[in-house]
Design a protein around this nucleic acid. Sequence first.
RNA 1: UGCCUGAUGGUGUAAUGGCAGCACAGGUGACUUUGACUCACCUAGUCAUGGUUCGAAUCCAUGUCGGGCAGCCA
Length: 594
Amino acid sequence: MTVENNAAPAPAAPTDFIRDIVAGHIAEKRYAGIVTRFPPEPNGYLHIGHAKSICLNFGIALENGGRCNLRMDDTNPTKEDVEYVDSIIADVRWLISGWADAHLGFKAKSATTETRTIDGRTDYYAAPAAPGTLAVEPFFASDYFDALHACAVELIKRGKAYVCDLSPADTDAYRGSPDTPGKDSPFRTRSIEESLALFERMRAGEFPNGARSLRAKIDMASSNIWLRDPLLYRIRHADHHQTGVKWRIYPLYDFAHCLSDYFEGITHSICTLEFVDHRALYDWILEALDLPRPLPHQYEFAKLNLGYTLVSKRKLLQLVQERIVSGWDDPRMPTLSGLRRRGVPAAAVRDFAYHIGITKFDSLTDVAVFEHAIRENLNATAQRRLGVLHPIKIVLTNLAPGEVIECDATNNPQDENPTTRKVALTREVFIESDDFAEVPPPKYFRLKPGGEVRLKYACIIKLDEIVKDASGAITELRCTADLTTRPGGANVEKKVKGTIHWVSASHCVDAEVRLYDRLFTVPEPVAQEDFTKFINPRSLEVITAKLEASLGDALPGQVFQLERTGYFTPDAKNSRPGKPVFNRTITLKDTWAK
RNA sequence: UGCCUGAUGGUGUAAUGGCAGCACAGGUGACUUUGACUCACCUAGUCAUGGUUCGAAUCCAUGUCGGGCAGCCA
């Protein structure tokens, strides 16, 4: 006998090949718990492509009662900066807030790996912060430099790594090419003792950059280039934003990443497709060390490509450096900070990530899917307000100067029990210039000579006279308001085709409004030889709008729908109470415009 | 030309040998004090060829096309 479940159905958990793999591991009880990680390099701001990965990794942690560690993959000191560390933390917290916060893995501040012995073998473990720990921070690969160094020494002792004196150019030449095997370095047969001594001198800073490297001893003839004795450590006389002057050698990605995963007890290490060829190396390093705990495994999915958008840290950096945009958080940028400033809710980004799925297919997602997620979220949540972007003045000739008629306006018709607010109807109001046509096209429902239209929440008006100046430009439209069509009036049920938005000329606030459009004119800017040639010249239009008075002191973080127009949010950097600056998040769909 | 990887409506994704479904986009209509939302309907797909099978998007073979790999970047 089954029990009827009348509760609102929880959104079906997404399924994809990676979640299927995880589910299989859970079924066979392979791990004590599921631990994923999101490991950005702090060399740029997070963007919508990272959001896909964040939602995948945190989603898997959430769905399985596990944890997702935030880790800075900071093994290359010359490219990284703390500015990026801070922005990454803020962006991740914003994206998962109210969703997967409880599954965010941070460590106690300044904590590093603990060294212990399991079954007679040395082990290194990076624990997450205990619940209730006050000072926490993300994990850092640079926290593991000592442990990583010890692992490198162990590899040399096992005869699985050697110090190579080949120059970068020679190393390259010896590697061969994809279709021709490489050849062994002359230093490959160097004794363990000599490599150990040389590696120690590398660490001590005795050699210049590029003079020597530590390499794994695998197979120079492998069909997989990444197995042709890959470099594990390089000499870098550079200070690190986390470890300062301590190190003169730094581990490379392939060596640091698999071990960082292991140290943290990661079970599923999920990355993008370009790392498929590295997986054999990932496994080789972990197996060569004979580690005592269960090993993490790498799984790969296709990264996001979004139409009319650039999803590449390097190219976004170029937009910033060449001042094509105002910064990483320019509201036209696909960065999380840009989207946030634009007014895109984190929940909309998450819904989007959910809808696009996870596969190994290299696809180009239509921006319309993202725009739909934004509109769907905002339609349900945004307070409605009245605002006129391109004003044209109306004089309601049958209202007295100074007369104020209070109208009830609905805050959000999508609410179960919608609330209302008062808006003032006065003799002079503004309407959208688009909502008037002296010579109307066919099926034009708005204001036209001799025609009638409803001012939303107020009453029906009739156009009597068009007033023009000497040059023929329209200065005002003189109309009669039919006050019997107001709510409660005798003719409130009277139907007209058009209902338009408006604001009182005396009860409104001027606001700078930034109208954003897509940044690029082509669906695939990345496919162009020079994407900077395809910047949309109209990606930003700045206007002064007339907004309902209540919008004068709106706060950043709030997103409003200006009825019949779009969604707008106060700009977090430039908006001030009484002197508001609004960003247009997105327009409403407009089937009439087509 | 070596290795890896992939191919399902316009786009993205599901179907794990058994009715090709969902979302977005597009179209038509209904509703509407937002030309929004909502609702209804419509359009449109398994890369090709062969094989296995009662039955193939799914398994096998061959081909075609796409993506990735030769940083002391990640």
